[in-house]
Design a protein around this nucleic acid. Structure first.
Length: 444
RNA sequence: GGAGGCGUCGCCUAGUCCGGUCUAUGGCGCCCGCCUGCUAAGCGGGUUUGGGGCUACAACCCCAUCGAGGGUUCAAAUCCCUCCGCCUCCGCCA
């Protein structure tokens, strides 16, 4: 068992995942997988099915290979033979060819069955992940103190109102032009996005990330490989008649970035900070967060994406969390860090931490960033390996939000607003806003 | 969008017309060893990836892999079809 997170706790995981676990774990230690399945209340039947499929697969492979070797030998004799002898050999090898074809088909079928069986098995959630579903997260820490507007003697405005006063967010025209859950960022709103992107990129670059502008349209392979065409497919925009998708996060293009590649061990960890627009249908969230820009169909985001070793992934996960916190600290926001429960881990993560910022007018913490350790799940699917001294094997992938623009703007405006509707600019952001210390209301 | 060209085991490359001796050529790089005051050169060997067998997860043996997938054939890097990617020229545009 590889080294993992420190701490303890039972775990429960989602019941259907698109990626796949290490086949060797299944073969060498099926009881571990059975235990994991049972722990999360899932049937261990899939484990047995995968095991027998593996046996069938190997038998089929052996059978095919034997036939193929025989055919090869005969083929060589045919090439050398002449006249009558050749005719005789041809007759024999002709019959054999049919058998080879049959064995090959059987092998392909067994292989496919095995693939299907093993993909029914979810990634093994970290033991440390809290048990339960969406509401069973554990608060790891709280940073900063939510502002007490009552004590300050004024009623906080929500970000919609502030955005209007500052001329920063135009929701009416967003709806007119593109529909609900769309917006225009205008004036200081637009500047704020650019400032946040710059601040995020600067921070990332300082600690060695490679800045990336990633494509937000991808082919099915990238979508499948990251598990977004599985149960999350409802939330994904597909381009009509093009067999392409709009990504919901640059995790998708960044995971696919090194697909089918073998990375030199010395080049790990590879850290990328990718900027891209993100598109989400938000199907199934009707009526939720209908006001403002908390939940929108499109937003821009700077995402951290890391390729590293499985052994390093646990520490790297903590580092990603630290960088996320560091960014929120720069913005002087009050937030809490939660350890997401196993049942809410989503696709390929074995553990996930969210940073939730305090939203004054909602009186609660809302998710601003999220970081996941996907171990080797995605890289096995996308065929991303590392070349190590003892051979090649899949690398681990991790992702973490550095700055999701819209929600960050919401937290920023609401947290730093002043009684007159102006908004104080955190010191770290000032250089990127022409040195402005306060965003002033504009006359409309 | 139109017309051509190309895709070979890290990089470059031979082979493709006329299917079998291709168990894929050669060079570069890299690794190991030899030689050697040191270095360089030289010499010998190794160097795709995935899977299976056997096992000490060594050595070894086998199968697949010449952009991907089909087809023809006893036999495909080689012939046919489809797709993907790249390059050049033209058109159009940011």
């Amino acid at each position: 068992m590889p080294a993992g997170y420190l701490g303890g706790g039972a775990c429960v995981a989602p019941d259907s995942l698109a990626d796949m676990i290490d086949p060797r774990i299944l073969r060498d230690d099926p009881d571990r997988v059975r235990a994991a399945q049972a722990k999360r209340g899932l049937s261990t039947e899939v484990v047995d099915r995968a095991l027998s499929a593996d046996a069938a697969r190997r038998a089929a492979i052996a059978s095919f290979e034997a036939k193929r070797a025989e055919q090869k030998q005969l083929g060589k004799q045919v090439a050398r033979a002449q006249g009558e002898e050749k005719q005789e050999l041809l007759a024999r090898t002709k019959a054999l060819a049919a058998e080879v074809k049959q064995a090959e088909a059987a092998q392909a079928e067994a292989e496919a069955a095995w693939q299907a069986a093993i993909m029914d098995i979810p990634n093994l959630a970290a033991d440390e992940a809290p048990a339960g579903g969406e509401d069973d997260f554990v608060v790891l820490e709280r940073v900063g103190t939510p502002r007490d507007f009552a004590a300050e003697g004024f009623e906080p405005r929500d970000h919609v109102e502030l955005g209007r006063i500052l001329g920063a967010i135009d929701l009416d025209r967003g709806a007119k032009v593109s529909g609900s859950r769309f917006y225009f960022l205008t004036g200081v709103g637009a500047e704020l996005e650019l400032a946040l992107v710059n601040l995020a990129m600067e921070q990332a670059r300082e600690v060695g990330f490679t800045p990336v502008i990633a494509p937000s349209m991808v082919k099915p392979r990238a979508m499948e490989g990251t598990g977004f065409l599985g149960q999350a497919a409802d939330d994904v925009y597909r381009i009509e008649g093009q067999d392409m998708y709009l990504v919901g996060t640059s995790e998708v293009p960044m995971a696919a970035y090194h697909s089918d590649e073998i990375l030199d061990a010395a080049s790990l960890p590879r850290r990328y900070a990718a900027f891209s627009p993100c598109f989400r249908k938000e199907a199934g969230s009707h009526g939720k967060d209908t006001k403002g820009i908390i939940r929108v169909h499109w937003f821009d985001k700077v995402e951290m994406f890391v390729y590293t070793t499985l052994e390093e992934s646990y520490a790297e996960h903590q580092r990603l969390l630290e960088w996320e916190k560091q960014f929120l600290d720069k913005l002087e926001l009050a937030y809490q860090v939660i350890d997401v429960a196993a049942g809410d881990l989503g696709l390929s993560a074995i553990r996930k931490f969210d940073c939730e910022a305090w939203i004054p007018t909602q009186g609660k913490y809302r998710e601003l960033t999220s970081t996941s350790n996907c171990t080797e799940f995605q890289s096995r699917r996308l065929d991303i390996r590392g070349r190590f001294e003892d051979g090649t094997r899949p690398v681990a992938t991790l992702n973490g939000t550095l700055c999701a623009i819209t929600r960050t703007i919401v937290a920023l405006l609401e947290t730093h607003q002043q009684a007159d509707g102006s908004v104080r600019v955190p010191k770290a952001l000032q250089p990127w806003l022409g040195g402005r210390e306060v965003l002033e209301p504009v006359a409309s």
